[in-house]
């Protein structure tokens, strides 16, 4: 479904991604972990086409998204549901409008009643029924995250990317969010790519994991193999040890 071949990205002369190669199969769940500023968010934004890598290519269902114009890229993005690190909710819209917006844009002729029903169902799914008319600024961090998830998944895109879906949330809400993401994934049969600083929580959620450090992949493979990695960076990061290269 998604193949990254030798991706190298420099921003303002700083090397952010260094020869990243990945092959993500349809229906799989991948997690990306790594120390701060290791290039995790930039990597998923590059997959969405926000950054053009200087080297390498990204194949999304066979289309090289590094070589297509912005108009074609918009078509590719219709197949990606993205939750941003800080949610990126539209502050000029209320909760309902935020969630209904992607559906209304992708189906301009949609029956208003059907739109209302679908958006309401999605809000109910994330436990926000009754908050439709609130502005996003009136919601707590966890509720905003859930609005972001509802918006990212309402179009049932084949690829869902979640950038820090549980950042700043308490353990109970974190657990609920991961359950919700799994339920949505099963219902939509989608492929999932999730970034998180919560290593333990993410490991319970994903099948495969990538460890990034200074723009390089230090580990890529099954989640279970993480413990046996001999890379000192991976070893230290996963165990949270103070001594080591990090």
């Amino acid at each position: 479904m998604l193949q990254l071949n030798d991706i190298t990205l420099k921003l303002d002369e700083n090397l952010i991604l260094d020869r990243i190669s990945l092959n993500i199969q349809p229906g799989s769940i991948w997690g990306i972990i790594g120390p701060p500023a290791s290039g995790k968010s930039v990597l998923v934004k590059t997959i969405c086409g926000f950054f053009k890598p200087q080297k390498g290519n990204i194949l999304f269902n066979g289309t090289d998204i590094c070589k297509i114009p912005e108009t074609k890229l918009l078509e590719i993005r219709k197949q990606i549901g993205m939750l941003f690190q800080n949610n990126a909710l539209f502050d000029f819209m209320n909760v309902w409008e935020n969630v209904a917006f992607p559906l209304r844009r992708s189906n301009p002729d949609i029956d208003p009643e059907l739109l209302r029903e679908k958006a309401w169902k999605r809000l109910k799914k994330v436990g926000l029924a009754g908050s439709e008319d609130k502005l996003c600024s009136e919601l707590s961090g966890g509720m905003q995250k859930r609005v972001g998830i509802a918006r990212a998944t309402i179009n049932k895109a084949p690829l869902n990317i979640y950038d820090e879906p549980t950042a700043g949330l308490d353990p109970v809400t974190t657990s609920k969010i991961y359950d919700l993401l799994l339920e949505i994934k099963r219902q939509n049969s989608s492929t999932v790519l999730a970034i998180s600083s919560d290593v333990e929580g993410l490991r319970n959620f994903v099948d495969n994991i990538i460890v990034l450090h200074e723009g390089k992949i230090r580990y890529s493979g099954p989640e279970k193999g993480l413990e046996t990695s001999t890379d000192p960076v991976v070893h230290q990061f996963v165990r949270g040890e103070e001594e080591g290269p990090l």
Binding site: K45, C48, G49, F50, L74, E75, R77, K78, I80, M82, F84, Q85, N86, A88, L89, F90, D91, F101, P102, R105, S106
Partner: peptide, 11 residues
């Protein structure tokens, strides 16, 4: 606040 990127992500 990445809302512009949010629009792009929604095609």
């Amino acid at each position: 606040t990445e809302q512009i990127d949010g629009l792009k992500a929604l095609a």
